[in-house]
């Protein structure tokens, strides 16, 4: 019978660096702002290089002449989901210590709906309009001013919005809590759905009149 080291008193040495690094004090907090700028640079570069500084490319997802938004967005979501689940499984990151966006049921639905109308009206979302501002798009500058006006309106009328903003709070829940699904199966199915969507989007694009911009 093999003798385990632990049974004879040795503690197995763990050399794994457990993420998240800053909340776990592995990287000192002072580095926070520098890391923020570096991550931002990569974020801006990737968005701009993928064509997200063009409102006409972004709006294409709603009219079927360009599905870049759908492809970039869902590829990113699936890559990050699979990556984080693997890192959690292998013990490199503690998923329970990651910040989970809180669920305020009607806030998410109504806020999302208002953003959806804003997206198809303005052709930008905040991250992409910032990228377009950086390369000099005047419509994006106007869009960012609009976003700031929108935030100002919300803040001034906060008492009116407060019931949906603070109401229907369900905690920082995940789909495992609300749907009682196994995360691995869920991600697997989501990946299959995304691949089918990508294939369908290519078929749709072939049938839709081309738009040049």
């Amino acid at each position: 019978m093999p003798i385990s080291l632990e049974k004879i008193g040795f503690k197995t040495l763990k050399l794994k660096i457990m993420g998240p690094l800053i909340p776990n004090d592995i990287i000192p907090f002072e580095w926070n702002s520098i890391i923020a700028i570096v991550i931002g640079i990569f974020f801006g570069f990737i968005l701009e290089a993928s064509g997200f500084s063009s409102s006409r490319k972004l709006a294409g997802v709603f009219y079927g002449y360009d599905f870049a938004v759908l492809k970039v967005f869902f590829t990113a979501a699936i890559v990050s989901l699979i990556g984080l689940l693997y890192m959690d499984y292998l013990g490199y990151v503690d998923m329970s210590r990651l910040y989970v966006h809180p669920t305020y049921l009607w806030g998410a639905i109504i806020g999302g709906a208002v953003m959806g109308i804003g997206f198809v009206t303005g052709g930008f979302c905040p991250g992409t309009s910032l990228c377009a501002v950086a390369i000099g798009k005047i419509d994006a500058i106007v869009n960012v001013i609009g976003i700031m006006i929108g935030i100002f309106i919300f803040s001034e009328l906060f008492t009116f919005f407060e019931p949906i903003y603070n109401g229907y709070f369900q905690g920082n829940i995940t789909l495992m809590d609300s749907l009682d699904v196994n995360p691995y199966w869920f991600v697997f199915i989501l990946t299959v759905v995304a691949i089918l969507m990508f294939a369908a989007s290519d078929l749709i694009r072939k049938r839709v009149k081309k738009v040049f911009y």
């Binding site: 806020g111 804003g118 997206f119 009206t121 106007v142 609009g146 309106i153 919005f161």
Partner: peptide, 24 residues
Amino acid sequence: FALIGGVLFGVGAQIARGCTSGAA
């Protein structure tokens, strides 16, 4: 339309506590 879209996005992002990047 870019301005109107921005205003709507600004209001919506506050109601939902985040935009396409932060929340979705």
